[in-house]
Design a protein around this nucleic acid. Sequence first.
RNA 1: GGCCCCUUCGACUAACGGUUAGGUCACAACCCUUUCAAGGUUGCUGUACGGGUUCGAAUCCCGUAGGGGUCACCA
Length: 482
Amino acid sequence: MSVRVRFAPSPTGYLHVGGLRTALYNYLFAKHHGGKCILRIEDTDRTRFVEGAVENLIRSLRWAGIEFDESPEVGGEYGPYTQSERFDMYRQYGMELLHKGHAYYAFDTPEELDAMRERQQKAGIAPRYDRTTMRNQYTLGEAETARLMADNAPHVIRLKVPLAGEIKFSDLVRGEIVVPARDVDDQILLKSDGFPTYHLANVVDDHFMQITHVIRGEEWLPSTPKHALMYDAFGWERPAFAHLPLLLNPDKSKLSKRQGDVAVEDYRDKGYFKEALVNFVPLLGWNPTSDREIFSMAEMIETFRLEKVNKAGAVFDIQKLDWMNNEYLRLKPSAELADALIDEACEKGLTDNKAYLEQVITLVRERVHKVNELLPFATYMFQQPTEFDEEYKAKFWTDEAKQHIPKIIEKFRHAESFDHTTLNGIVKEYAKESGVKMGVFANVLRLMTTGKQVGAGVFETLETLGKEHVLARCEYFLGRFA
RNA sequence: GGCCCCUUCGACUAACGGUUAGGUCACAACCCUUUCAAGGUUGCUGUACGGGUUCGAAUCCCGUAGGGGUCACCA
């Protein structure tokens, strides 16, 4: 039987990086085995409907390079792929469970349930639906149940979990897991509005979509016994389960908005490359080998093994992502980056000359991590500096420099070529003749032309700036500080 | 609190029961140099703890501690 996996997000607005990783693991696993990767939208909670969320989700996934074999967008033979369009099924199978005696009617109001939990809390026992004392078809009896149903009394359908025994299932990441049945709650399957809960919809869909492997986050581990029970109750074969470790904040709690960016689009907008994000995220919890960090999607598909996924959660280390993004930044053609940034450069009044922008990018690309740091970092390449790093100036703008610099500038003025090799030669020669350290001149030239202590190589900077601008900037500086 | 899961440098991880416990990021130092950066070299710090099993344990077993997840008519 060929592999079929699914990524099943609920459309709450955006794609979380943890969701991206889950989607990626599903995708890598499917592609590795020549199977199918399916997108299913889990929108059974109408109170959480967010306009445009599905489109946004698909856009982010597509940006990351994930295309689904079956989805609400492209369809497929097991559709529809949006749960809100499958409601009839859930009701039908919820009723089937009821008729088989694996589920039952319950009539408790939310207030009654709250009161029950409060009592249990006070008694120091775990809050769980108590089917021996609450209002359900067992305590009420057949006649009363029938009467309430005939009256259209609000009701839910709950899963009838055995009171004793163990529920076992195996997990591809964690091995065998055993839970005492008495610790499993009688989960609501169909809500009073007739809509299914995640648990019912999920099991029904995974079965009928012929999902072979359920690969999802660890937060689902505690409810998996319920799902296992449902497969058994239906008489369906259980899929293989694989629960992924969580992505963590630096303080080891579940990765959250509170402590930084979690939306994939945030990373995209900040100038991270999809190649970097898609390379970095799967490596949080899985590693094909220990002697390499940079992998393409194709290479990850080739080497991915679910069995090699770690059990422990992984801290999302932005510093390493930054490093990795720079690795990709170095590989990107400057022309491509210039294309991406020319509009912004125009808007900011920096330059409308794409060829020059490209040169500047080539010059500074190694110094930043992200695409959108390029322009702010290189502002001095477009605008004559009027502010000069005081510390830097104090250190290098010495009497000695004041004495020699005008002469060097004169030599620049008469240089037959303005490439960095020539410039470097001129300064080197002058340094030798005057007996002053080369570094003094190089730093002063940087100070005068950029105002900053940090930047690309001085002579390369001068070459890119061009003779005219270099001389103008030096004159401006001299005019103020000579 | 109940239940479940987890535990190798600060972070991500590697290591057929036999390695001086390896790599990457970060950090530090040094070299190079033109300040910073880059590059090069080196260093730093780790098998949570306690017991077993074994000739031999990061690795297998038990316990303890710590961390996390989850306990909704949310997913």
